[in-house]
Amino acid sequence: MKEQLLDLAKNRRSIYALGRNLTQTPDELADLITKTIKWVPTSFNNQTTRAVILFGENHEQLWDIVAKRLKSEVPSEEAYQKTLQKINAFKAAFGTVLYYTDMSVVHQFENDFALYADNFYDWSEQGQGNAQFAVWTALAENGIGANLQHYNPLIDDEVKAAFNIPDDWKLRAQMDFGSIEAPAGDKEFMADSDRFKILK
């Protein structure tokens, strides 16, 4: 059996020690990310996933927004300082992909295909998973580390205002990426017998 895809998947890990020591340009990275998202499957080929790719000051501004917004959420200054260390690690990366779902398309398909209306949002989430995994793996294939964060919906309004995001776009995740400054640890797996059922 060919296992090239499996090998690529094994190479995709959550990397938290990220830097800016990349040889690729922002244009090259944006091209890779956009092409990858274009080729992932979505239900009814409705292409509900949107992405905003941030570099430079825009990337830093995002994580400043996160840091400022979380200050009111943590219980103490000590806890906030720990949170701030984590946010600053994301800010130290080269860039960030903001993943969105275009809810206007979801609603359009709910109306156009009423029999399946209850499923289209769930299916858009599957499209998100496809896009995020594919981009993450494509970055890893090029020696670029990444991790996936979910500060939505706390940051939604501030991010929308900062980056002129359309009203119908719903923020689903934030993926910061950059040079790998320290590798991921060992990955642990639950028992296959608890996870898979194979019937012959």
Rank of each mutant, 00 (worst) to 15 (best):
L5T: 11
L5I: 14
D7C: 04
D7Y: 05
L8I: 11
L8W: 13
A9I: 14
K10R: 15
N11Q: 15
R12N: 09
S14Q: 07
S14H: 05
Y16A: 06
A17E: 11
A17L: 01
L18G: 08
R20G: 10
N21H: 04
T23F: 00
T25C: 01
D27A: 14
D27F: 00
D31G: 08
L32N: 05
I33P: 08
T34F: 06
T36A: 11
I37S: 02
I37H: 01
K38E: 10
W39R: 12
S43N: 08
S43M: 04
S43I: 00
S43H: 13
F44E: 02
F44Y: 12
F44M: 13
N46H: 07
T48Y: 01
T48H: 01
T49R: 01
R50P: 02
A51F: 00
A51R: 08
V52N: 00
F55M: 08
W63Q: 08
I65V: 06
V66P: 06
A67V: 06
A67F: 01
L70D: 13
L70S: 13
E73S: 09
V74C: 05
E77D: 15
Y80C: 02
Q81P: 03
T83M: 14
T83W: 03
Q85V: 10
Q85A: 12
I87H: 03
F90Y: 13
F90V: 05
K91C: 11
A93I: 06
G95T: 05
T96Y: 11
T96S: 15
L98W: 10
L98T: 07
L98G: 11
Y99S: 09
Y100A: 08
Y100I: 02
T101Q: 14
M103S: 08
S104E: 14
V106A: 03
Q108R: 11
Q108F: 10
F113P: 00
A114Y: 09
Y116V: 03
A117P: 03
D118H: 12
F120V: 05
F120Q: 07
D122R: 14
D122N: 11
W123A: 06
Q126L: 13
Q128V: 08
G129I: 00
N130C: 13
N130P: 01
N130Y: 15
A131T: 07
Q132Y: 02
F133A: 10
V135D: 10
V135N: 10
T137M: 12
T137V: 01
A140K: 02
N142R: 15
G145H: 06
A146I: 08
A146V: 07
L148S: 03
H150N: 07
H150K: 07
Y151E: 03
N152I: 01
P153G: 10
L154C: 00
I155A: 09
D157Y: 02
E158C: 02
V159A: 05
V159F: 01
A162R: 05
A162N: 04
N164R: 03
N164C: 01
N164V: 11
I165L: 09
I165Q: 05
I165E: 09
P166W: 14
P166H: 11
D167W: 00
K170V: 09
M175Y: 08
I180R: 06
I180E: 00
A182W: 02
A182F: 09
A182V: 05
G185V: 06
G185A: 12
D186P: 04
D186T: 15
A191E: 14
A191D: 15
D192W: 06
S193H: 05
R195Q: 06
I198P: 01
L199V: 12
K200L: 02
